[in-house]
Amino acid sequence: MGRLLTLMLGGTLTSLKIFFLTLLFALPLGLLVAKGRMSKHRIISSLVNGYIMIMRGTPLILQLIFVYFAPYYVFGASSDRFTAVIIAYAINYAAYFAEIYRGGIQSIPQGQLEASSVLGFTKVHTFTHIVMPQVVKRIMPAMGNEVITLVKDTALAQTIGVAELFRVAQNAAAREFSTMPIFVAGVFYFVMNAIVSKSFDLIERKLDYYK
């Protein structure tokens, strides 16, 4: 049992790495994608829209396989498995985040932009100091949903042979002819997501200083 837990903690570590690296890249990338989607240039906005359609319209597992194997057929070499996972997850989650950002940005009343304009703020200052802080507050519930899904989606990384938590649990289950490790993994995911939920609650409460 002790050995099993050690193995599973190792898998958890891999899952956590996927989780945090995906957030690290997808959160800023999503903002860029949202900006592109809202661009006044028709070409940019339709290109970005196409990208979002593909990312949301096909299974993540398929995208993962594509990102891992496509370079092999094109360049004759693959990136390593873990890198492929991070790339696939980052570009997939960026698409979802982008739509959440877009919803948030478009929900900010026009009057906020007009007041900023009359007061002489630059576009950058308006975006970073007036719009985004209010967007962050508004999108927290939707972001919470997405981030919780990401914790569970890390299990897909095993498709291309990354030994994350679920793969480790499955291997252990096969070795020991027992489904117990799978259920232990379930508890691990549950605990991770309990922490994620709690964190979002805390952030939401912190942002509650204004209405």
Binding site: G111, E114, A115, I130, P133, Y210
Partner: peptide, 8 residues
């Protein structure tokens, strides 16, 4: 008319 103060 609607003040447009910055709520945050």
């Amino acid at each position: 008319q609607n003040f447009n103060l910055f709520p945050h």
